[in-house]
């Protein structure tokens, strides 16, 4: 469903020259699974997901979503995905219903099927009471619900959640994770990025640990525990990051010595 091969992204930076945000990552995700991207801030998770959602273009490498190339067929890719991120806000001057309807129309749905679909989604996400509420008057949790409804309106095979629980209280976050779980059960291919271990442990079928633009390790949780002989996932994560930082600094001092 999602194939990512040697994907790199670098930005021109006046001071540092080229700043590498993604250093050639590769992974695959299939329908009916939640693929977790776990990493500290600045690991490159958002860059990777922005490329998958075609908001950014890759510097090199390839990424396809349901067979469509993110670089040359961005419109088609966007039809295949629903993208929820901390950076995708809701419109202040639109009601929940208007907002979801607007995106449904942009996805090319005709009015009648769209209305039926929206009724279902509003029921499922328990959004009846905020139906005619303007975005500006919504709480963070309500806004997140609208974002999810917006991402689901065209029933995409792929869903991308980028730090979707950031800023949510425990109750809303729990409800969100439950929704994501249900979507997996419906056969969606889900990419879920976070820096919170517990969410990964609760939710993800497979996980890639990212740091400084690299994927340090990838596999199911059980595989990772076995491979690194560490049952505590947080310890495992910390050990991998420290090991990578140590290697990088040794390499840097070696290069400097040369």
């Amino acid at each position: 469903m999602i194939h990512v091969r040697q994907l790199t992204k670098s930005y021109a930076d006046l001071r540092r020259g080229q700043f590498v945000a993604l250093a050639g990552i590769s992974f695959d995700a299939v329908p009916g699974e939640i693929y977790g991207l776990l990493g500290p801030n600045g690991a490159g998770k958002t860059s990777a997901l922005r490329i998958l959602s075609t908001v950014l273009r890759p510097t090199s490498g390839q990424a396809t979503v349901n067979g469509y190339d993110v670089l040359t067929q961005p419109s088609l890719v966007r039809h295949q995905i629903g993208f929820v991120s901390t950076n995708t806000a809701v419109y202040d001057r639109m009601t929940a219903w208007e907002m979801v309807e607007y995106f449904g129309r942009l996805y090319g749905l005709s009015p009648e099927p769209l209305r039926e679909r929206m009724e279902q989604i509003f029921d499922r996400l328990q959004m009846r009471e905020i139906r005619d509420l303007l975005g500006a008057k919504m709480s963070t949790g309500m806004k997140q619900k609208v974002s999810i409804a917006r991402a689901l309106v065209h029933d995409p095979p792929v869903l991308i959640f980028d730090e979707a629980t950031a800023g949510l209280d425990v109750l809303v976050a729990r409800a969100l994770l439950k929704t994501v779980g249900q979507l997996r059960d419906q056969g969606k291919c889900i990419i879920f990025s976070t820096h919170i271990m517990r969410e990964v442990e609760r939710l993800c079928d497979r996980v890639a640990i990212m740091h400084r633009g690299h994927i340090l390790a990838e596999g199911t949780l059980a595989e990772l525990r076995d491979r690194y002989h560490e049952s505590d996932f947080e310890e495992l994560f910390f050990a991998l990051i420290s090991q990578h930082d140590g290697e990088s600094s040794r390499a840097a001092s070696y290069m400097a010595a040369l």
Partner: peptide, 14 residues
């Protein structure tokens, strides 16, 4: 500023 541009950019609209 309001964070809605990325929402629109990730929609199918070219």
């Amino acid at each position: 500023e309001r964070g809605t541009l990325e929402t629109l950019l990730s929609s199918p609209a070219q």
